[in-house]
Protein backbone atom coordinates (compact mmCIF):
# COMPACT_ATOMS: atom_id res chain seq x y z
CA UNK A 1 0.00 0.00 0.00
CA UNK A 2 2.97 2.30 0.60
CA UNK A 3 4.23 4.41 -2.28
CA UNK A 4 7.67 6.03 -2.60
CA UNK A 5 6.42 9.49 -1.70
CA UNK A 6 4.77 8.33 1.52
CA UNK A 7 7.66 9.61 3.60
CA UNK A 8 7.18 13.17 2.41
CA UNK A 9 5.45 15.61 4.74
CA UNK A 10 2.31 17.10 3.23
CA UNK A 11 2.08 20.88 3.01
CA UNK A 12 -0.82 23.12 2.09
CA UNK A 13 -1.57 26.84 1.94
CA UNK A 14 -3.80 28.19 4.68
CA UNK A 15 -5.21 31.70 4.92
CA UNK A 16 -6.44 33.12 8.19
CA UNK A 17 -8.68 36.03 7.30
CA UNK A 18 -11.09 38.21 9.19
CA UNK A 19 -12.49 41.69 8.65
CA UNK A 20 -12.83 43.81 11.77
CA UNK A 21 -15.33 46.65 11.66
CA UNK A 22 -14.04 49.39 13.91
CA UNK A 23 -15.93 52.39 15.23
CA UNK A 24 -13.93 55.51 14.53
CA UNK A 25 -14.91 57.90 17.31
CA UNK A 26 -15.65 61.61 16.81
CA UNK A 27 -12.18 62.76 15.75
CA UNK A 28 -11.16 60.07 13.26
CA UNK A 29 -14.78 59.99 12.00
CA UNK A 30 -14.34 63.57 10.81
CA UNK A 31 -10.80 62.89 9.59
CA UNK A 32 -12.10 60.15 7.27
CA UNK A 33 -15.03 62.32 6.20
CA UNK A 34 -12.51 64.99 5.29
CA UNK A 35 -10.49 62.53 3.21
CA UNK A 36 -13.70 61.66 1.31
CA UNK A 37 -13.98 65.35 0.47
CA UNK A 38 -10.32 65.57 -0.57
CA UNK A 39 -9.31 67.51 2.56
CA UNK A 40 -7.07 66.64 5.49
CA UNK A 41 -8.05 67.52 9.05
CA UNK A 42 -5.72 67.72 12.02
CA UNK A 43 -6.38 68.11 15.74
CA UNK A 44 -5.20 71.27 17.48
CA UNK A 45 -4.14 70.84 21.08
CA UNK A 46 -4.36 73.35 23.93
CA UNK A 47 -0.67 74.11 23.45
CA UNK A 48 -1.28 74.94 19.79
CA UNK A 49 0.30 71.87 18.25
CA UNK A 50 -1.51 70.32 15.27
CA UNK A 51 -1.63 66.50 15.17
CA UNK A 52 -2.06 64.77 11.79
CA UNK A 53 -3.49 62.18 11.76
CA UNK A 54 -5.63 63.63 14.53
CA UNK A 55 -5.82 62.11 18.00
CA UNK A 56 -8.61 62.58 20.54
CA UNK A 57 -6.16 63.48 23.27
CA UNK A 58 -2.89 65.41 23.38
CA UNK A 59 -0.21 62.73 23.81
CA UNK A 60 1.94 65.19 25.79
CA UNK A 61 -0.63 66.29 28.37
CA UNK A 62 -3.51 63.80 28.14
CA UNK A 63 -5.93 66.72 27.65
CA UNK A 64 -8.69 66.49 25.04
CA UNK A 65 -7.72 68.23 21.82
CA UNK A 66 -9.41 71.60 21.23
CA UNK A 67 -10.45 71.65 17.61
CA UNK A 68 -10.24 70.04 14.23
CA UNK A 69 -8.57 72.26 11.66
CA UNK A 70 -7.70 71.83 8.01
CA UNK A 71 -4.09 71.34 6.97
CA UNK A 72 -2.49 71.19 3.54
CA UNK A 73 -2.55 68.20 1.20
CA UNK A 74 1.14 68.71 0.45
CA UNK A 75 3.99 68.27 2.86
CA UNK A 76 7.58 67.33 3.57
CA UNK A 77 9.14 63.89 3.96
CA UNK A 78 10.84 63.65 7.35
CA UNK A 79 12.14 60.10 6.94
CA UNK A 80 11.59 57.21 4.56
CA UNK A 81 12.42 53.68 3.51
CA UNK A 82 12.18 51.89 0.17
CA UNK A 83 10.08 48.81 -0.64
CA UNK A 84 11.45 46.88 -3.62
CA UNK A 85 8.94 44.03 -3.55
CA UNK A 86 5.55 45.23 -2.28
CA UNK A 87 3.44 42.74 -0.33
CA UNK A 88 -0.07 41.87 -1.48
CA UNK A 89 -1.50 44.25 1.10
CA UNK A 90 0.75 47.21 0.20
CA UNK A 91 -0.93 50.39 -1.07
CA UNK A 92 0.96 50.22 -4.38
CA UNK A 93 1.76 47.16 -6.48
CA UNK A 94 5.05 48.57 -7.80
CA UNK A 95 8.13 49.49 -5.76
CA UNK A 96 7.49 52.55 -3.60
CA UNK A 97 8.70 54.44 -0.54
CA UNK A 98 7.14 54.37 2.90
CA UNK A 99 7.58 57.84 4.34
CA UNK A 100 6.72 59.91 7.35
CA UNK A 101 5.17 63.03 5.85
CA UNK A 102 4.58 66.26 7.75
CA UNK A 103 1.76 68.04 5.96
CA UNK A 104 1.86 71.82 5.68
CA UNK A 105 0.34 73.24 8.85
CA UNK A 106 0.90 70.07 10.88
CA UNK A 107 3.41 69.48 13.67
CA UNK A 108 3.46 65.68 13.43
CA UNK A 109 4.17 63.35 10.55
CA UNK A 110 1.88 60.73 9.01
CA UNK A 111 2.98 57.40 7.53
CA UNK A 112 2.04 56.96 3.87
CA UNK A 113 3.34 55.68 0.55
CA UNK A 114 5.30 57.83 -1.91
CA UNK A 115 5.10 56.82 -5.59
CA UNK A 116 8.60 57.98 -6.49
CA UNK A 117 9.50 55.29 -9.02
CA UNK A 118 12.98 54.73 -7.65
CA UNK A 119 14.82 55.28 -4.34
CA UNK A 120 17.06 57.83 -6.10
CA UNK A 121 14.05 60.15 -6.24
CA UNK A 122 13.45 59.86 -2.48
CA UNK A 123 15.08 62.24 -0.02
CA UNK A 124 14.48 63.52 3.46
CA UNK A 125 13.09 67.03 3.02
CA UNK A 126 11.52 66.28 -0.36
CA UNK A 127 8.13 67.81 -1.12
CA UNK A 128 5.15 65.54 -1.83
CA UNK A 129 1.46 65.99 -2.52
CA UNK A 130 -1.46 63.68 -1.79
CA UNK A 131 -3.08 61.82 -4.69
CA UNK A 132 -6.73 61.24 -3.79
CA UNK A 133 -8.77 58.22 -4.89
CA UNK A 134 -11.30 58.71 -7.67
CA UNK A 135 -13.91 56.83 -5.64
CA UNK A 136 -13.38 57.66 -1.96
CA UNK A 137 -14.99 55.46 0.65
CA UNK A 138 -14.01 57.08 3.93
CA UNK A 139 -10.72 55.40 4.79
CA UNK A 140 -7.01 56.19 4.86
CA UNK A 141 -6.86 54.60 1.40
CA UNK A 142 -8.80 57.64 0.10
CA UNK A 143 -5.26 58.98 -0.19
CA UNK A 144 -3.90 56.53 -2.77
CA UNK A 145 -0.34 57.69 -2.16
CA UNK A 146 1.78 60.82 -2.31
CA UNK A 147 3.49 62.08 -5.48
CA UNK A 148 6.83 63.90 -5.48
CA UNK A 149 6.46 67.62 -6.20
CA UNK A 150 9.23 68.69 -8.58
CA UNK A 151 11.05 71.84 -7.54
CA UNK A 152 10.29 74.60 -10.03
Amino acid sequence: MATPDDSEVLKAPYALQYTYTRSTGPVLGHFFAGLMAGRVLGARTATGRVLVPPAEYDPDTGEAVEALIEVGTAGTVTTWTWVDAPAESAPLSRAFGWALIRLDGADTAMLHAVDAGSPERMATGMRVRARFAAEPRGAITDIVCFDPVEAS
Binding site: P13, Y14, A15, L16, Q17, Y18, T19, Y20, T21, R22, S23, T24, P26, L28, G29, H30, F32, A33, M36, S89, G138, A139
Partner: peptide
Protein backbone atom coordinates in the same frame (compact mmCIF):
# COMPACT_ATOMS: atom_id res chain seq x y z
CA UNK B 1 -18.52 61.78 10.04
CA UNK B 2 -17.56 58.26 8.99
CA UNK B 3 -18.76 56.13 11.90
CA UNK B 4 -17.10 52.81 11.01
CA UNK B 5 -14.24 51.51 8.93
CA UNK B 6 -13.50 47.96 7.77
CA UNK B 7 -10.07 46.66 8.72
CA UNK B 8 -9.34 43.38 6.92
CA UNK B 9 -6.76 41.15 8.56
CA UNK B 10 -5.17 38.33 6.60
CA UNK B 11 -2.32 35.97 7.40
CA UNK B 12 -1.10 33.47 4.81
CA UNK B 13 0.42 30.29 6.21
Amino acid sequence: PVMRIDCPVRLDY
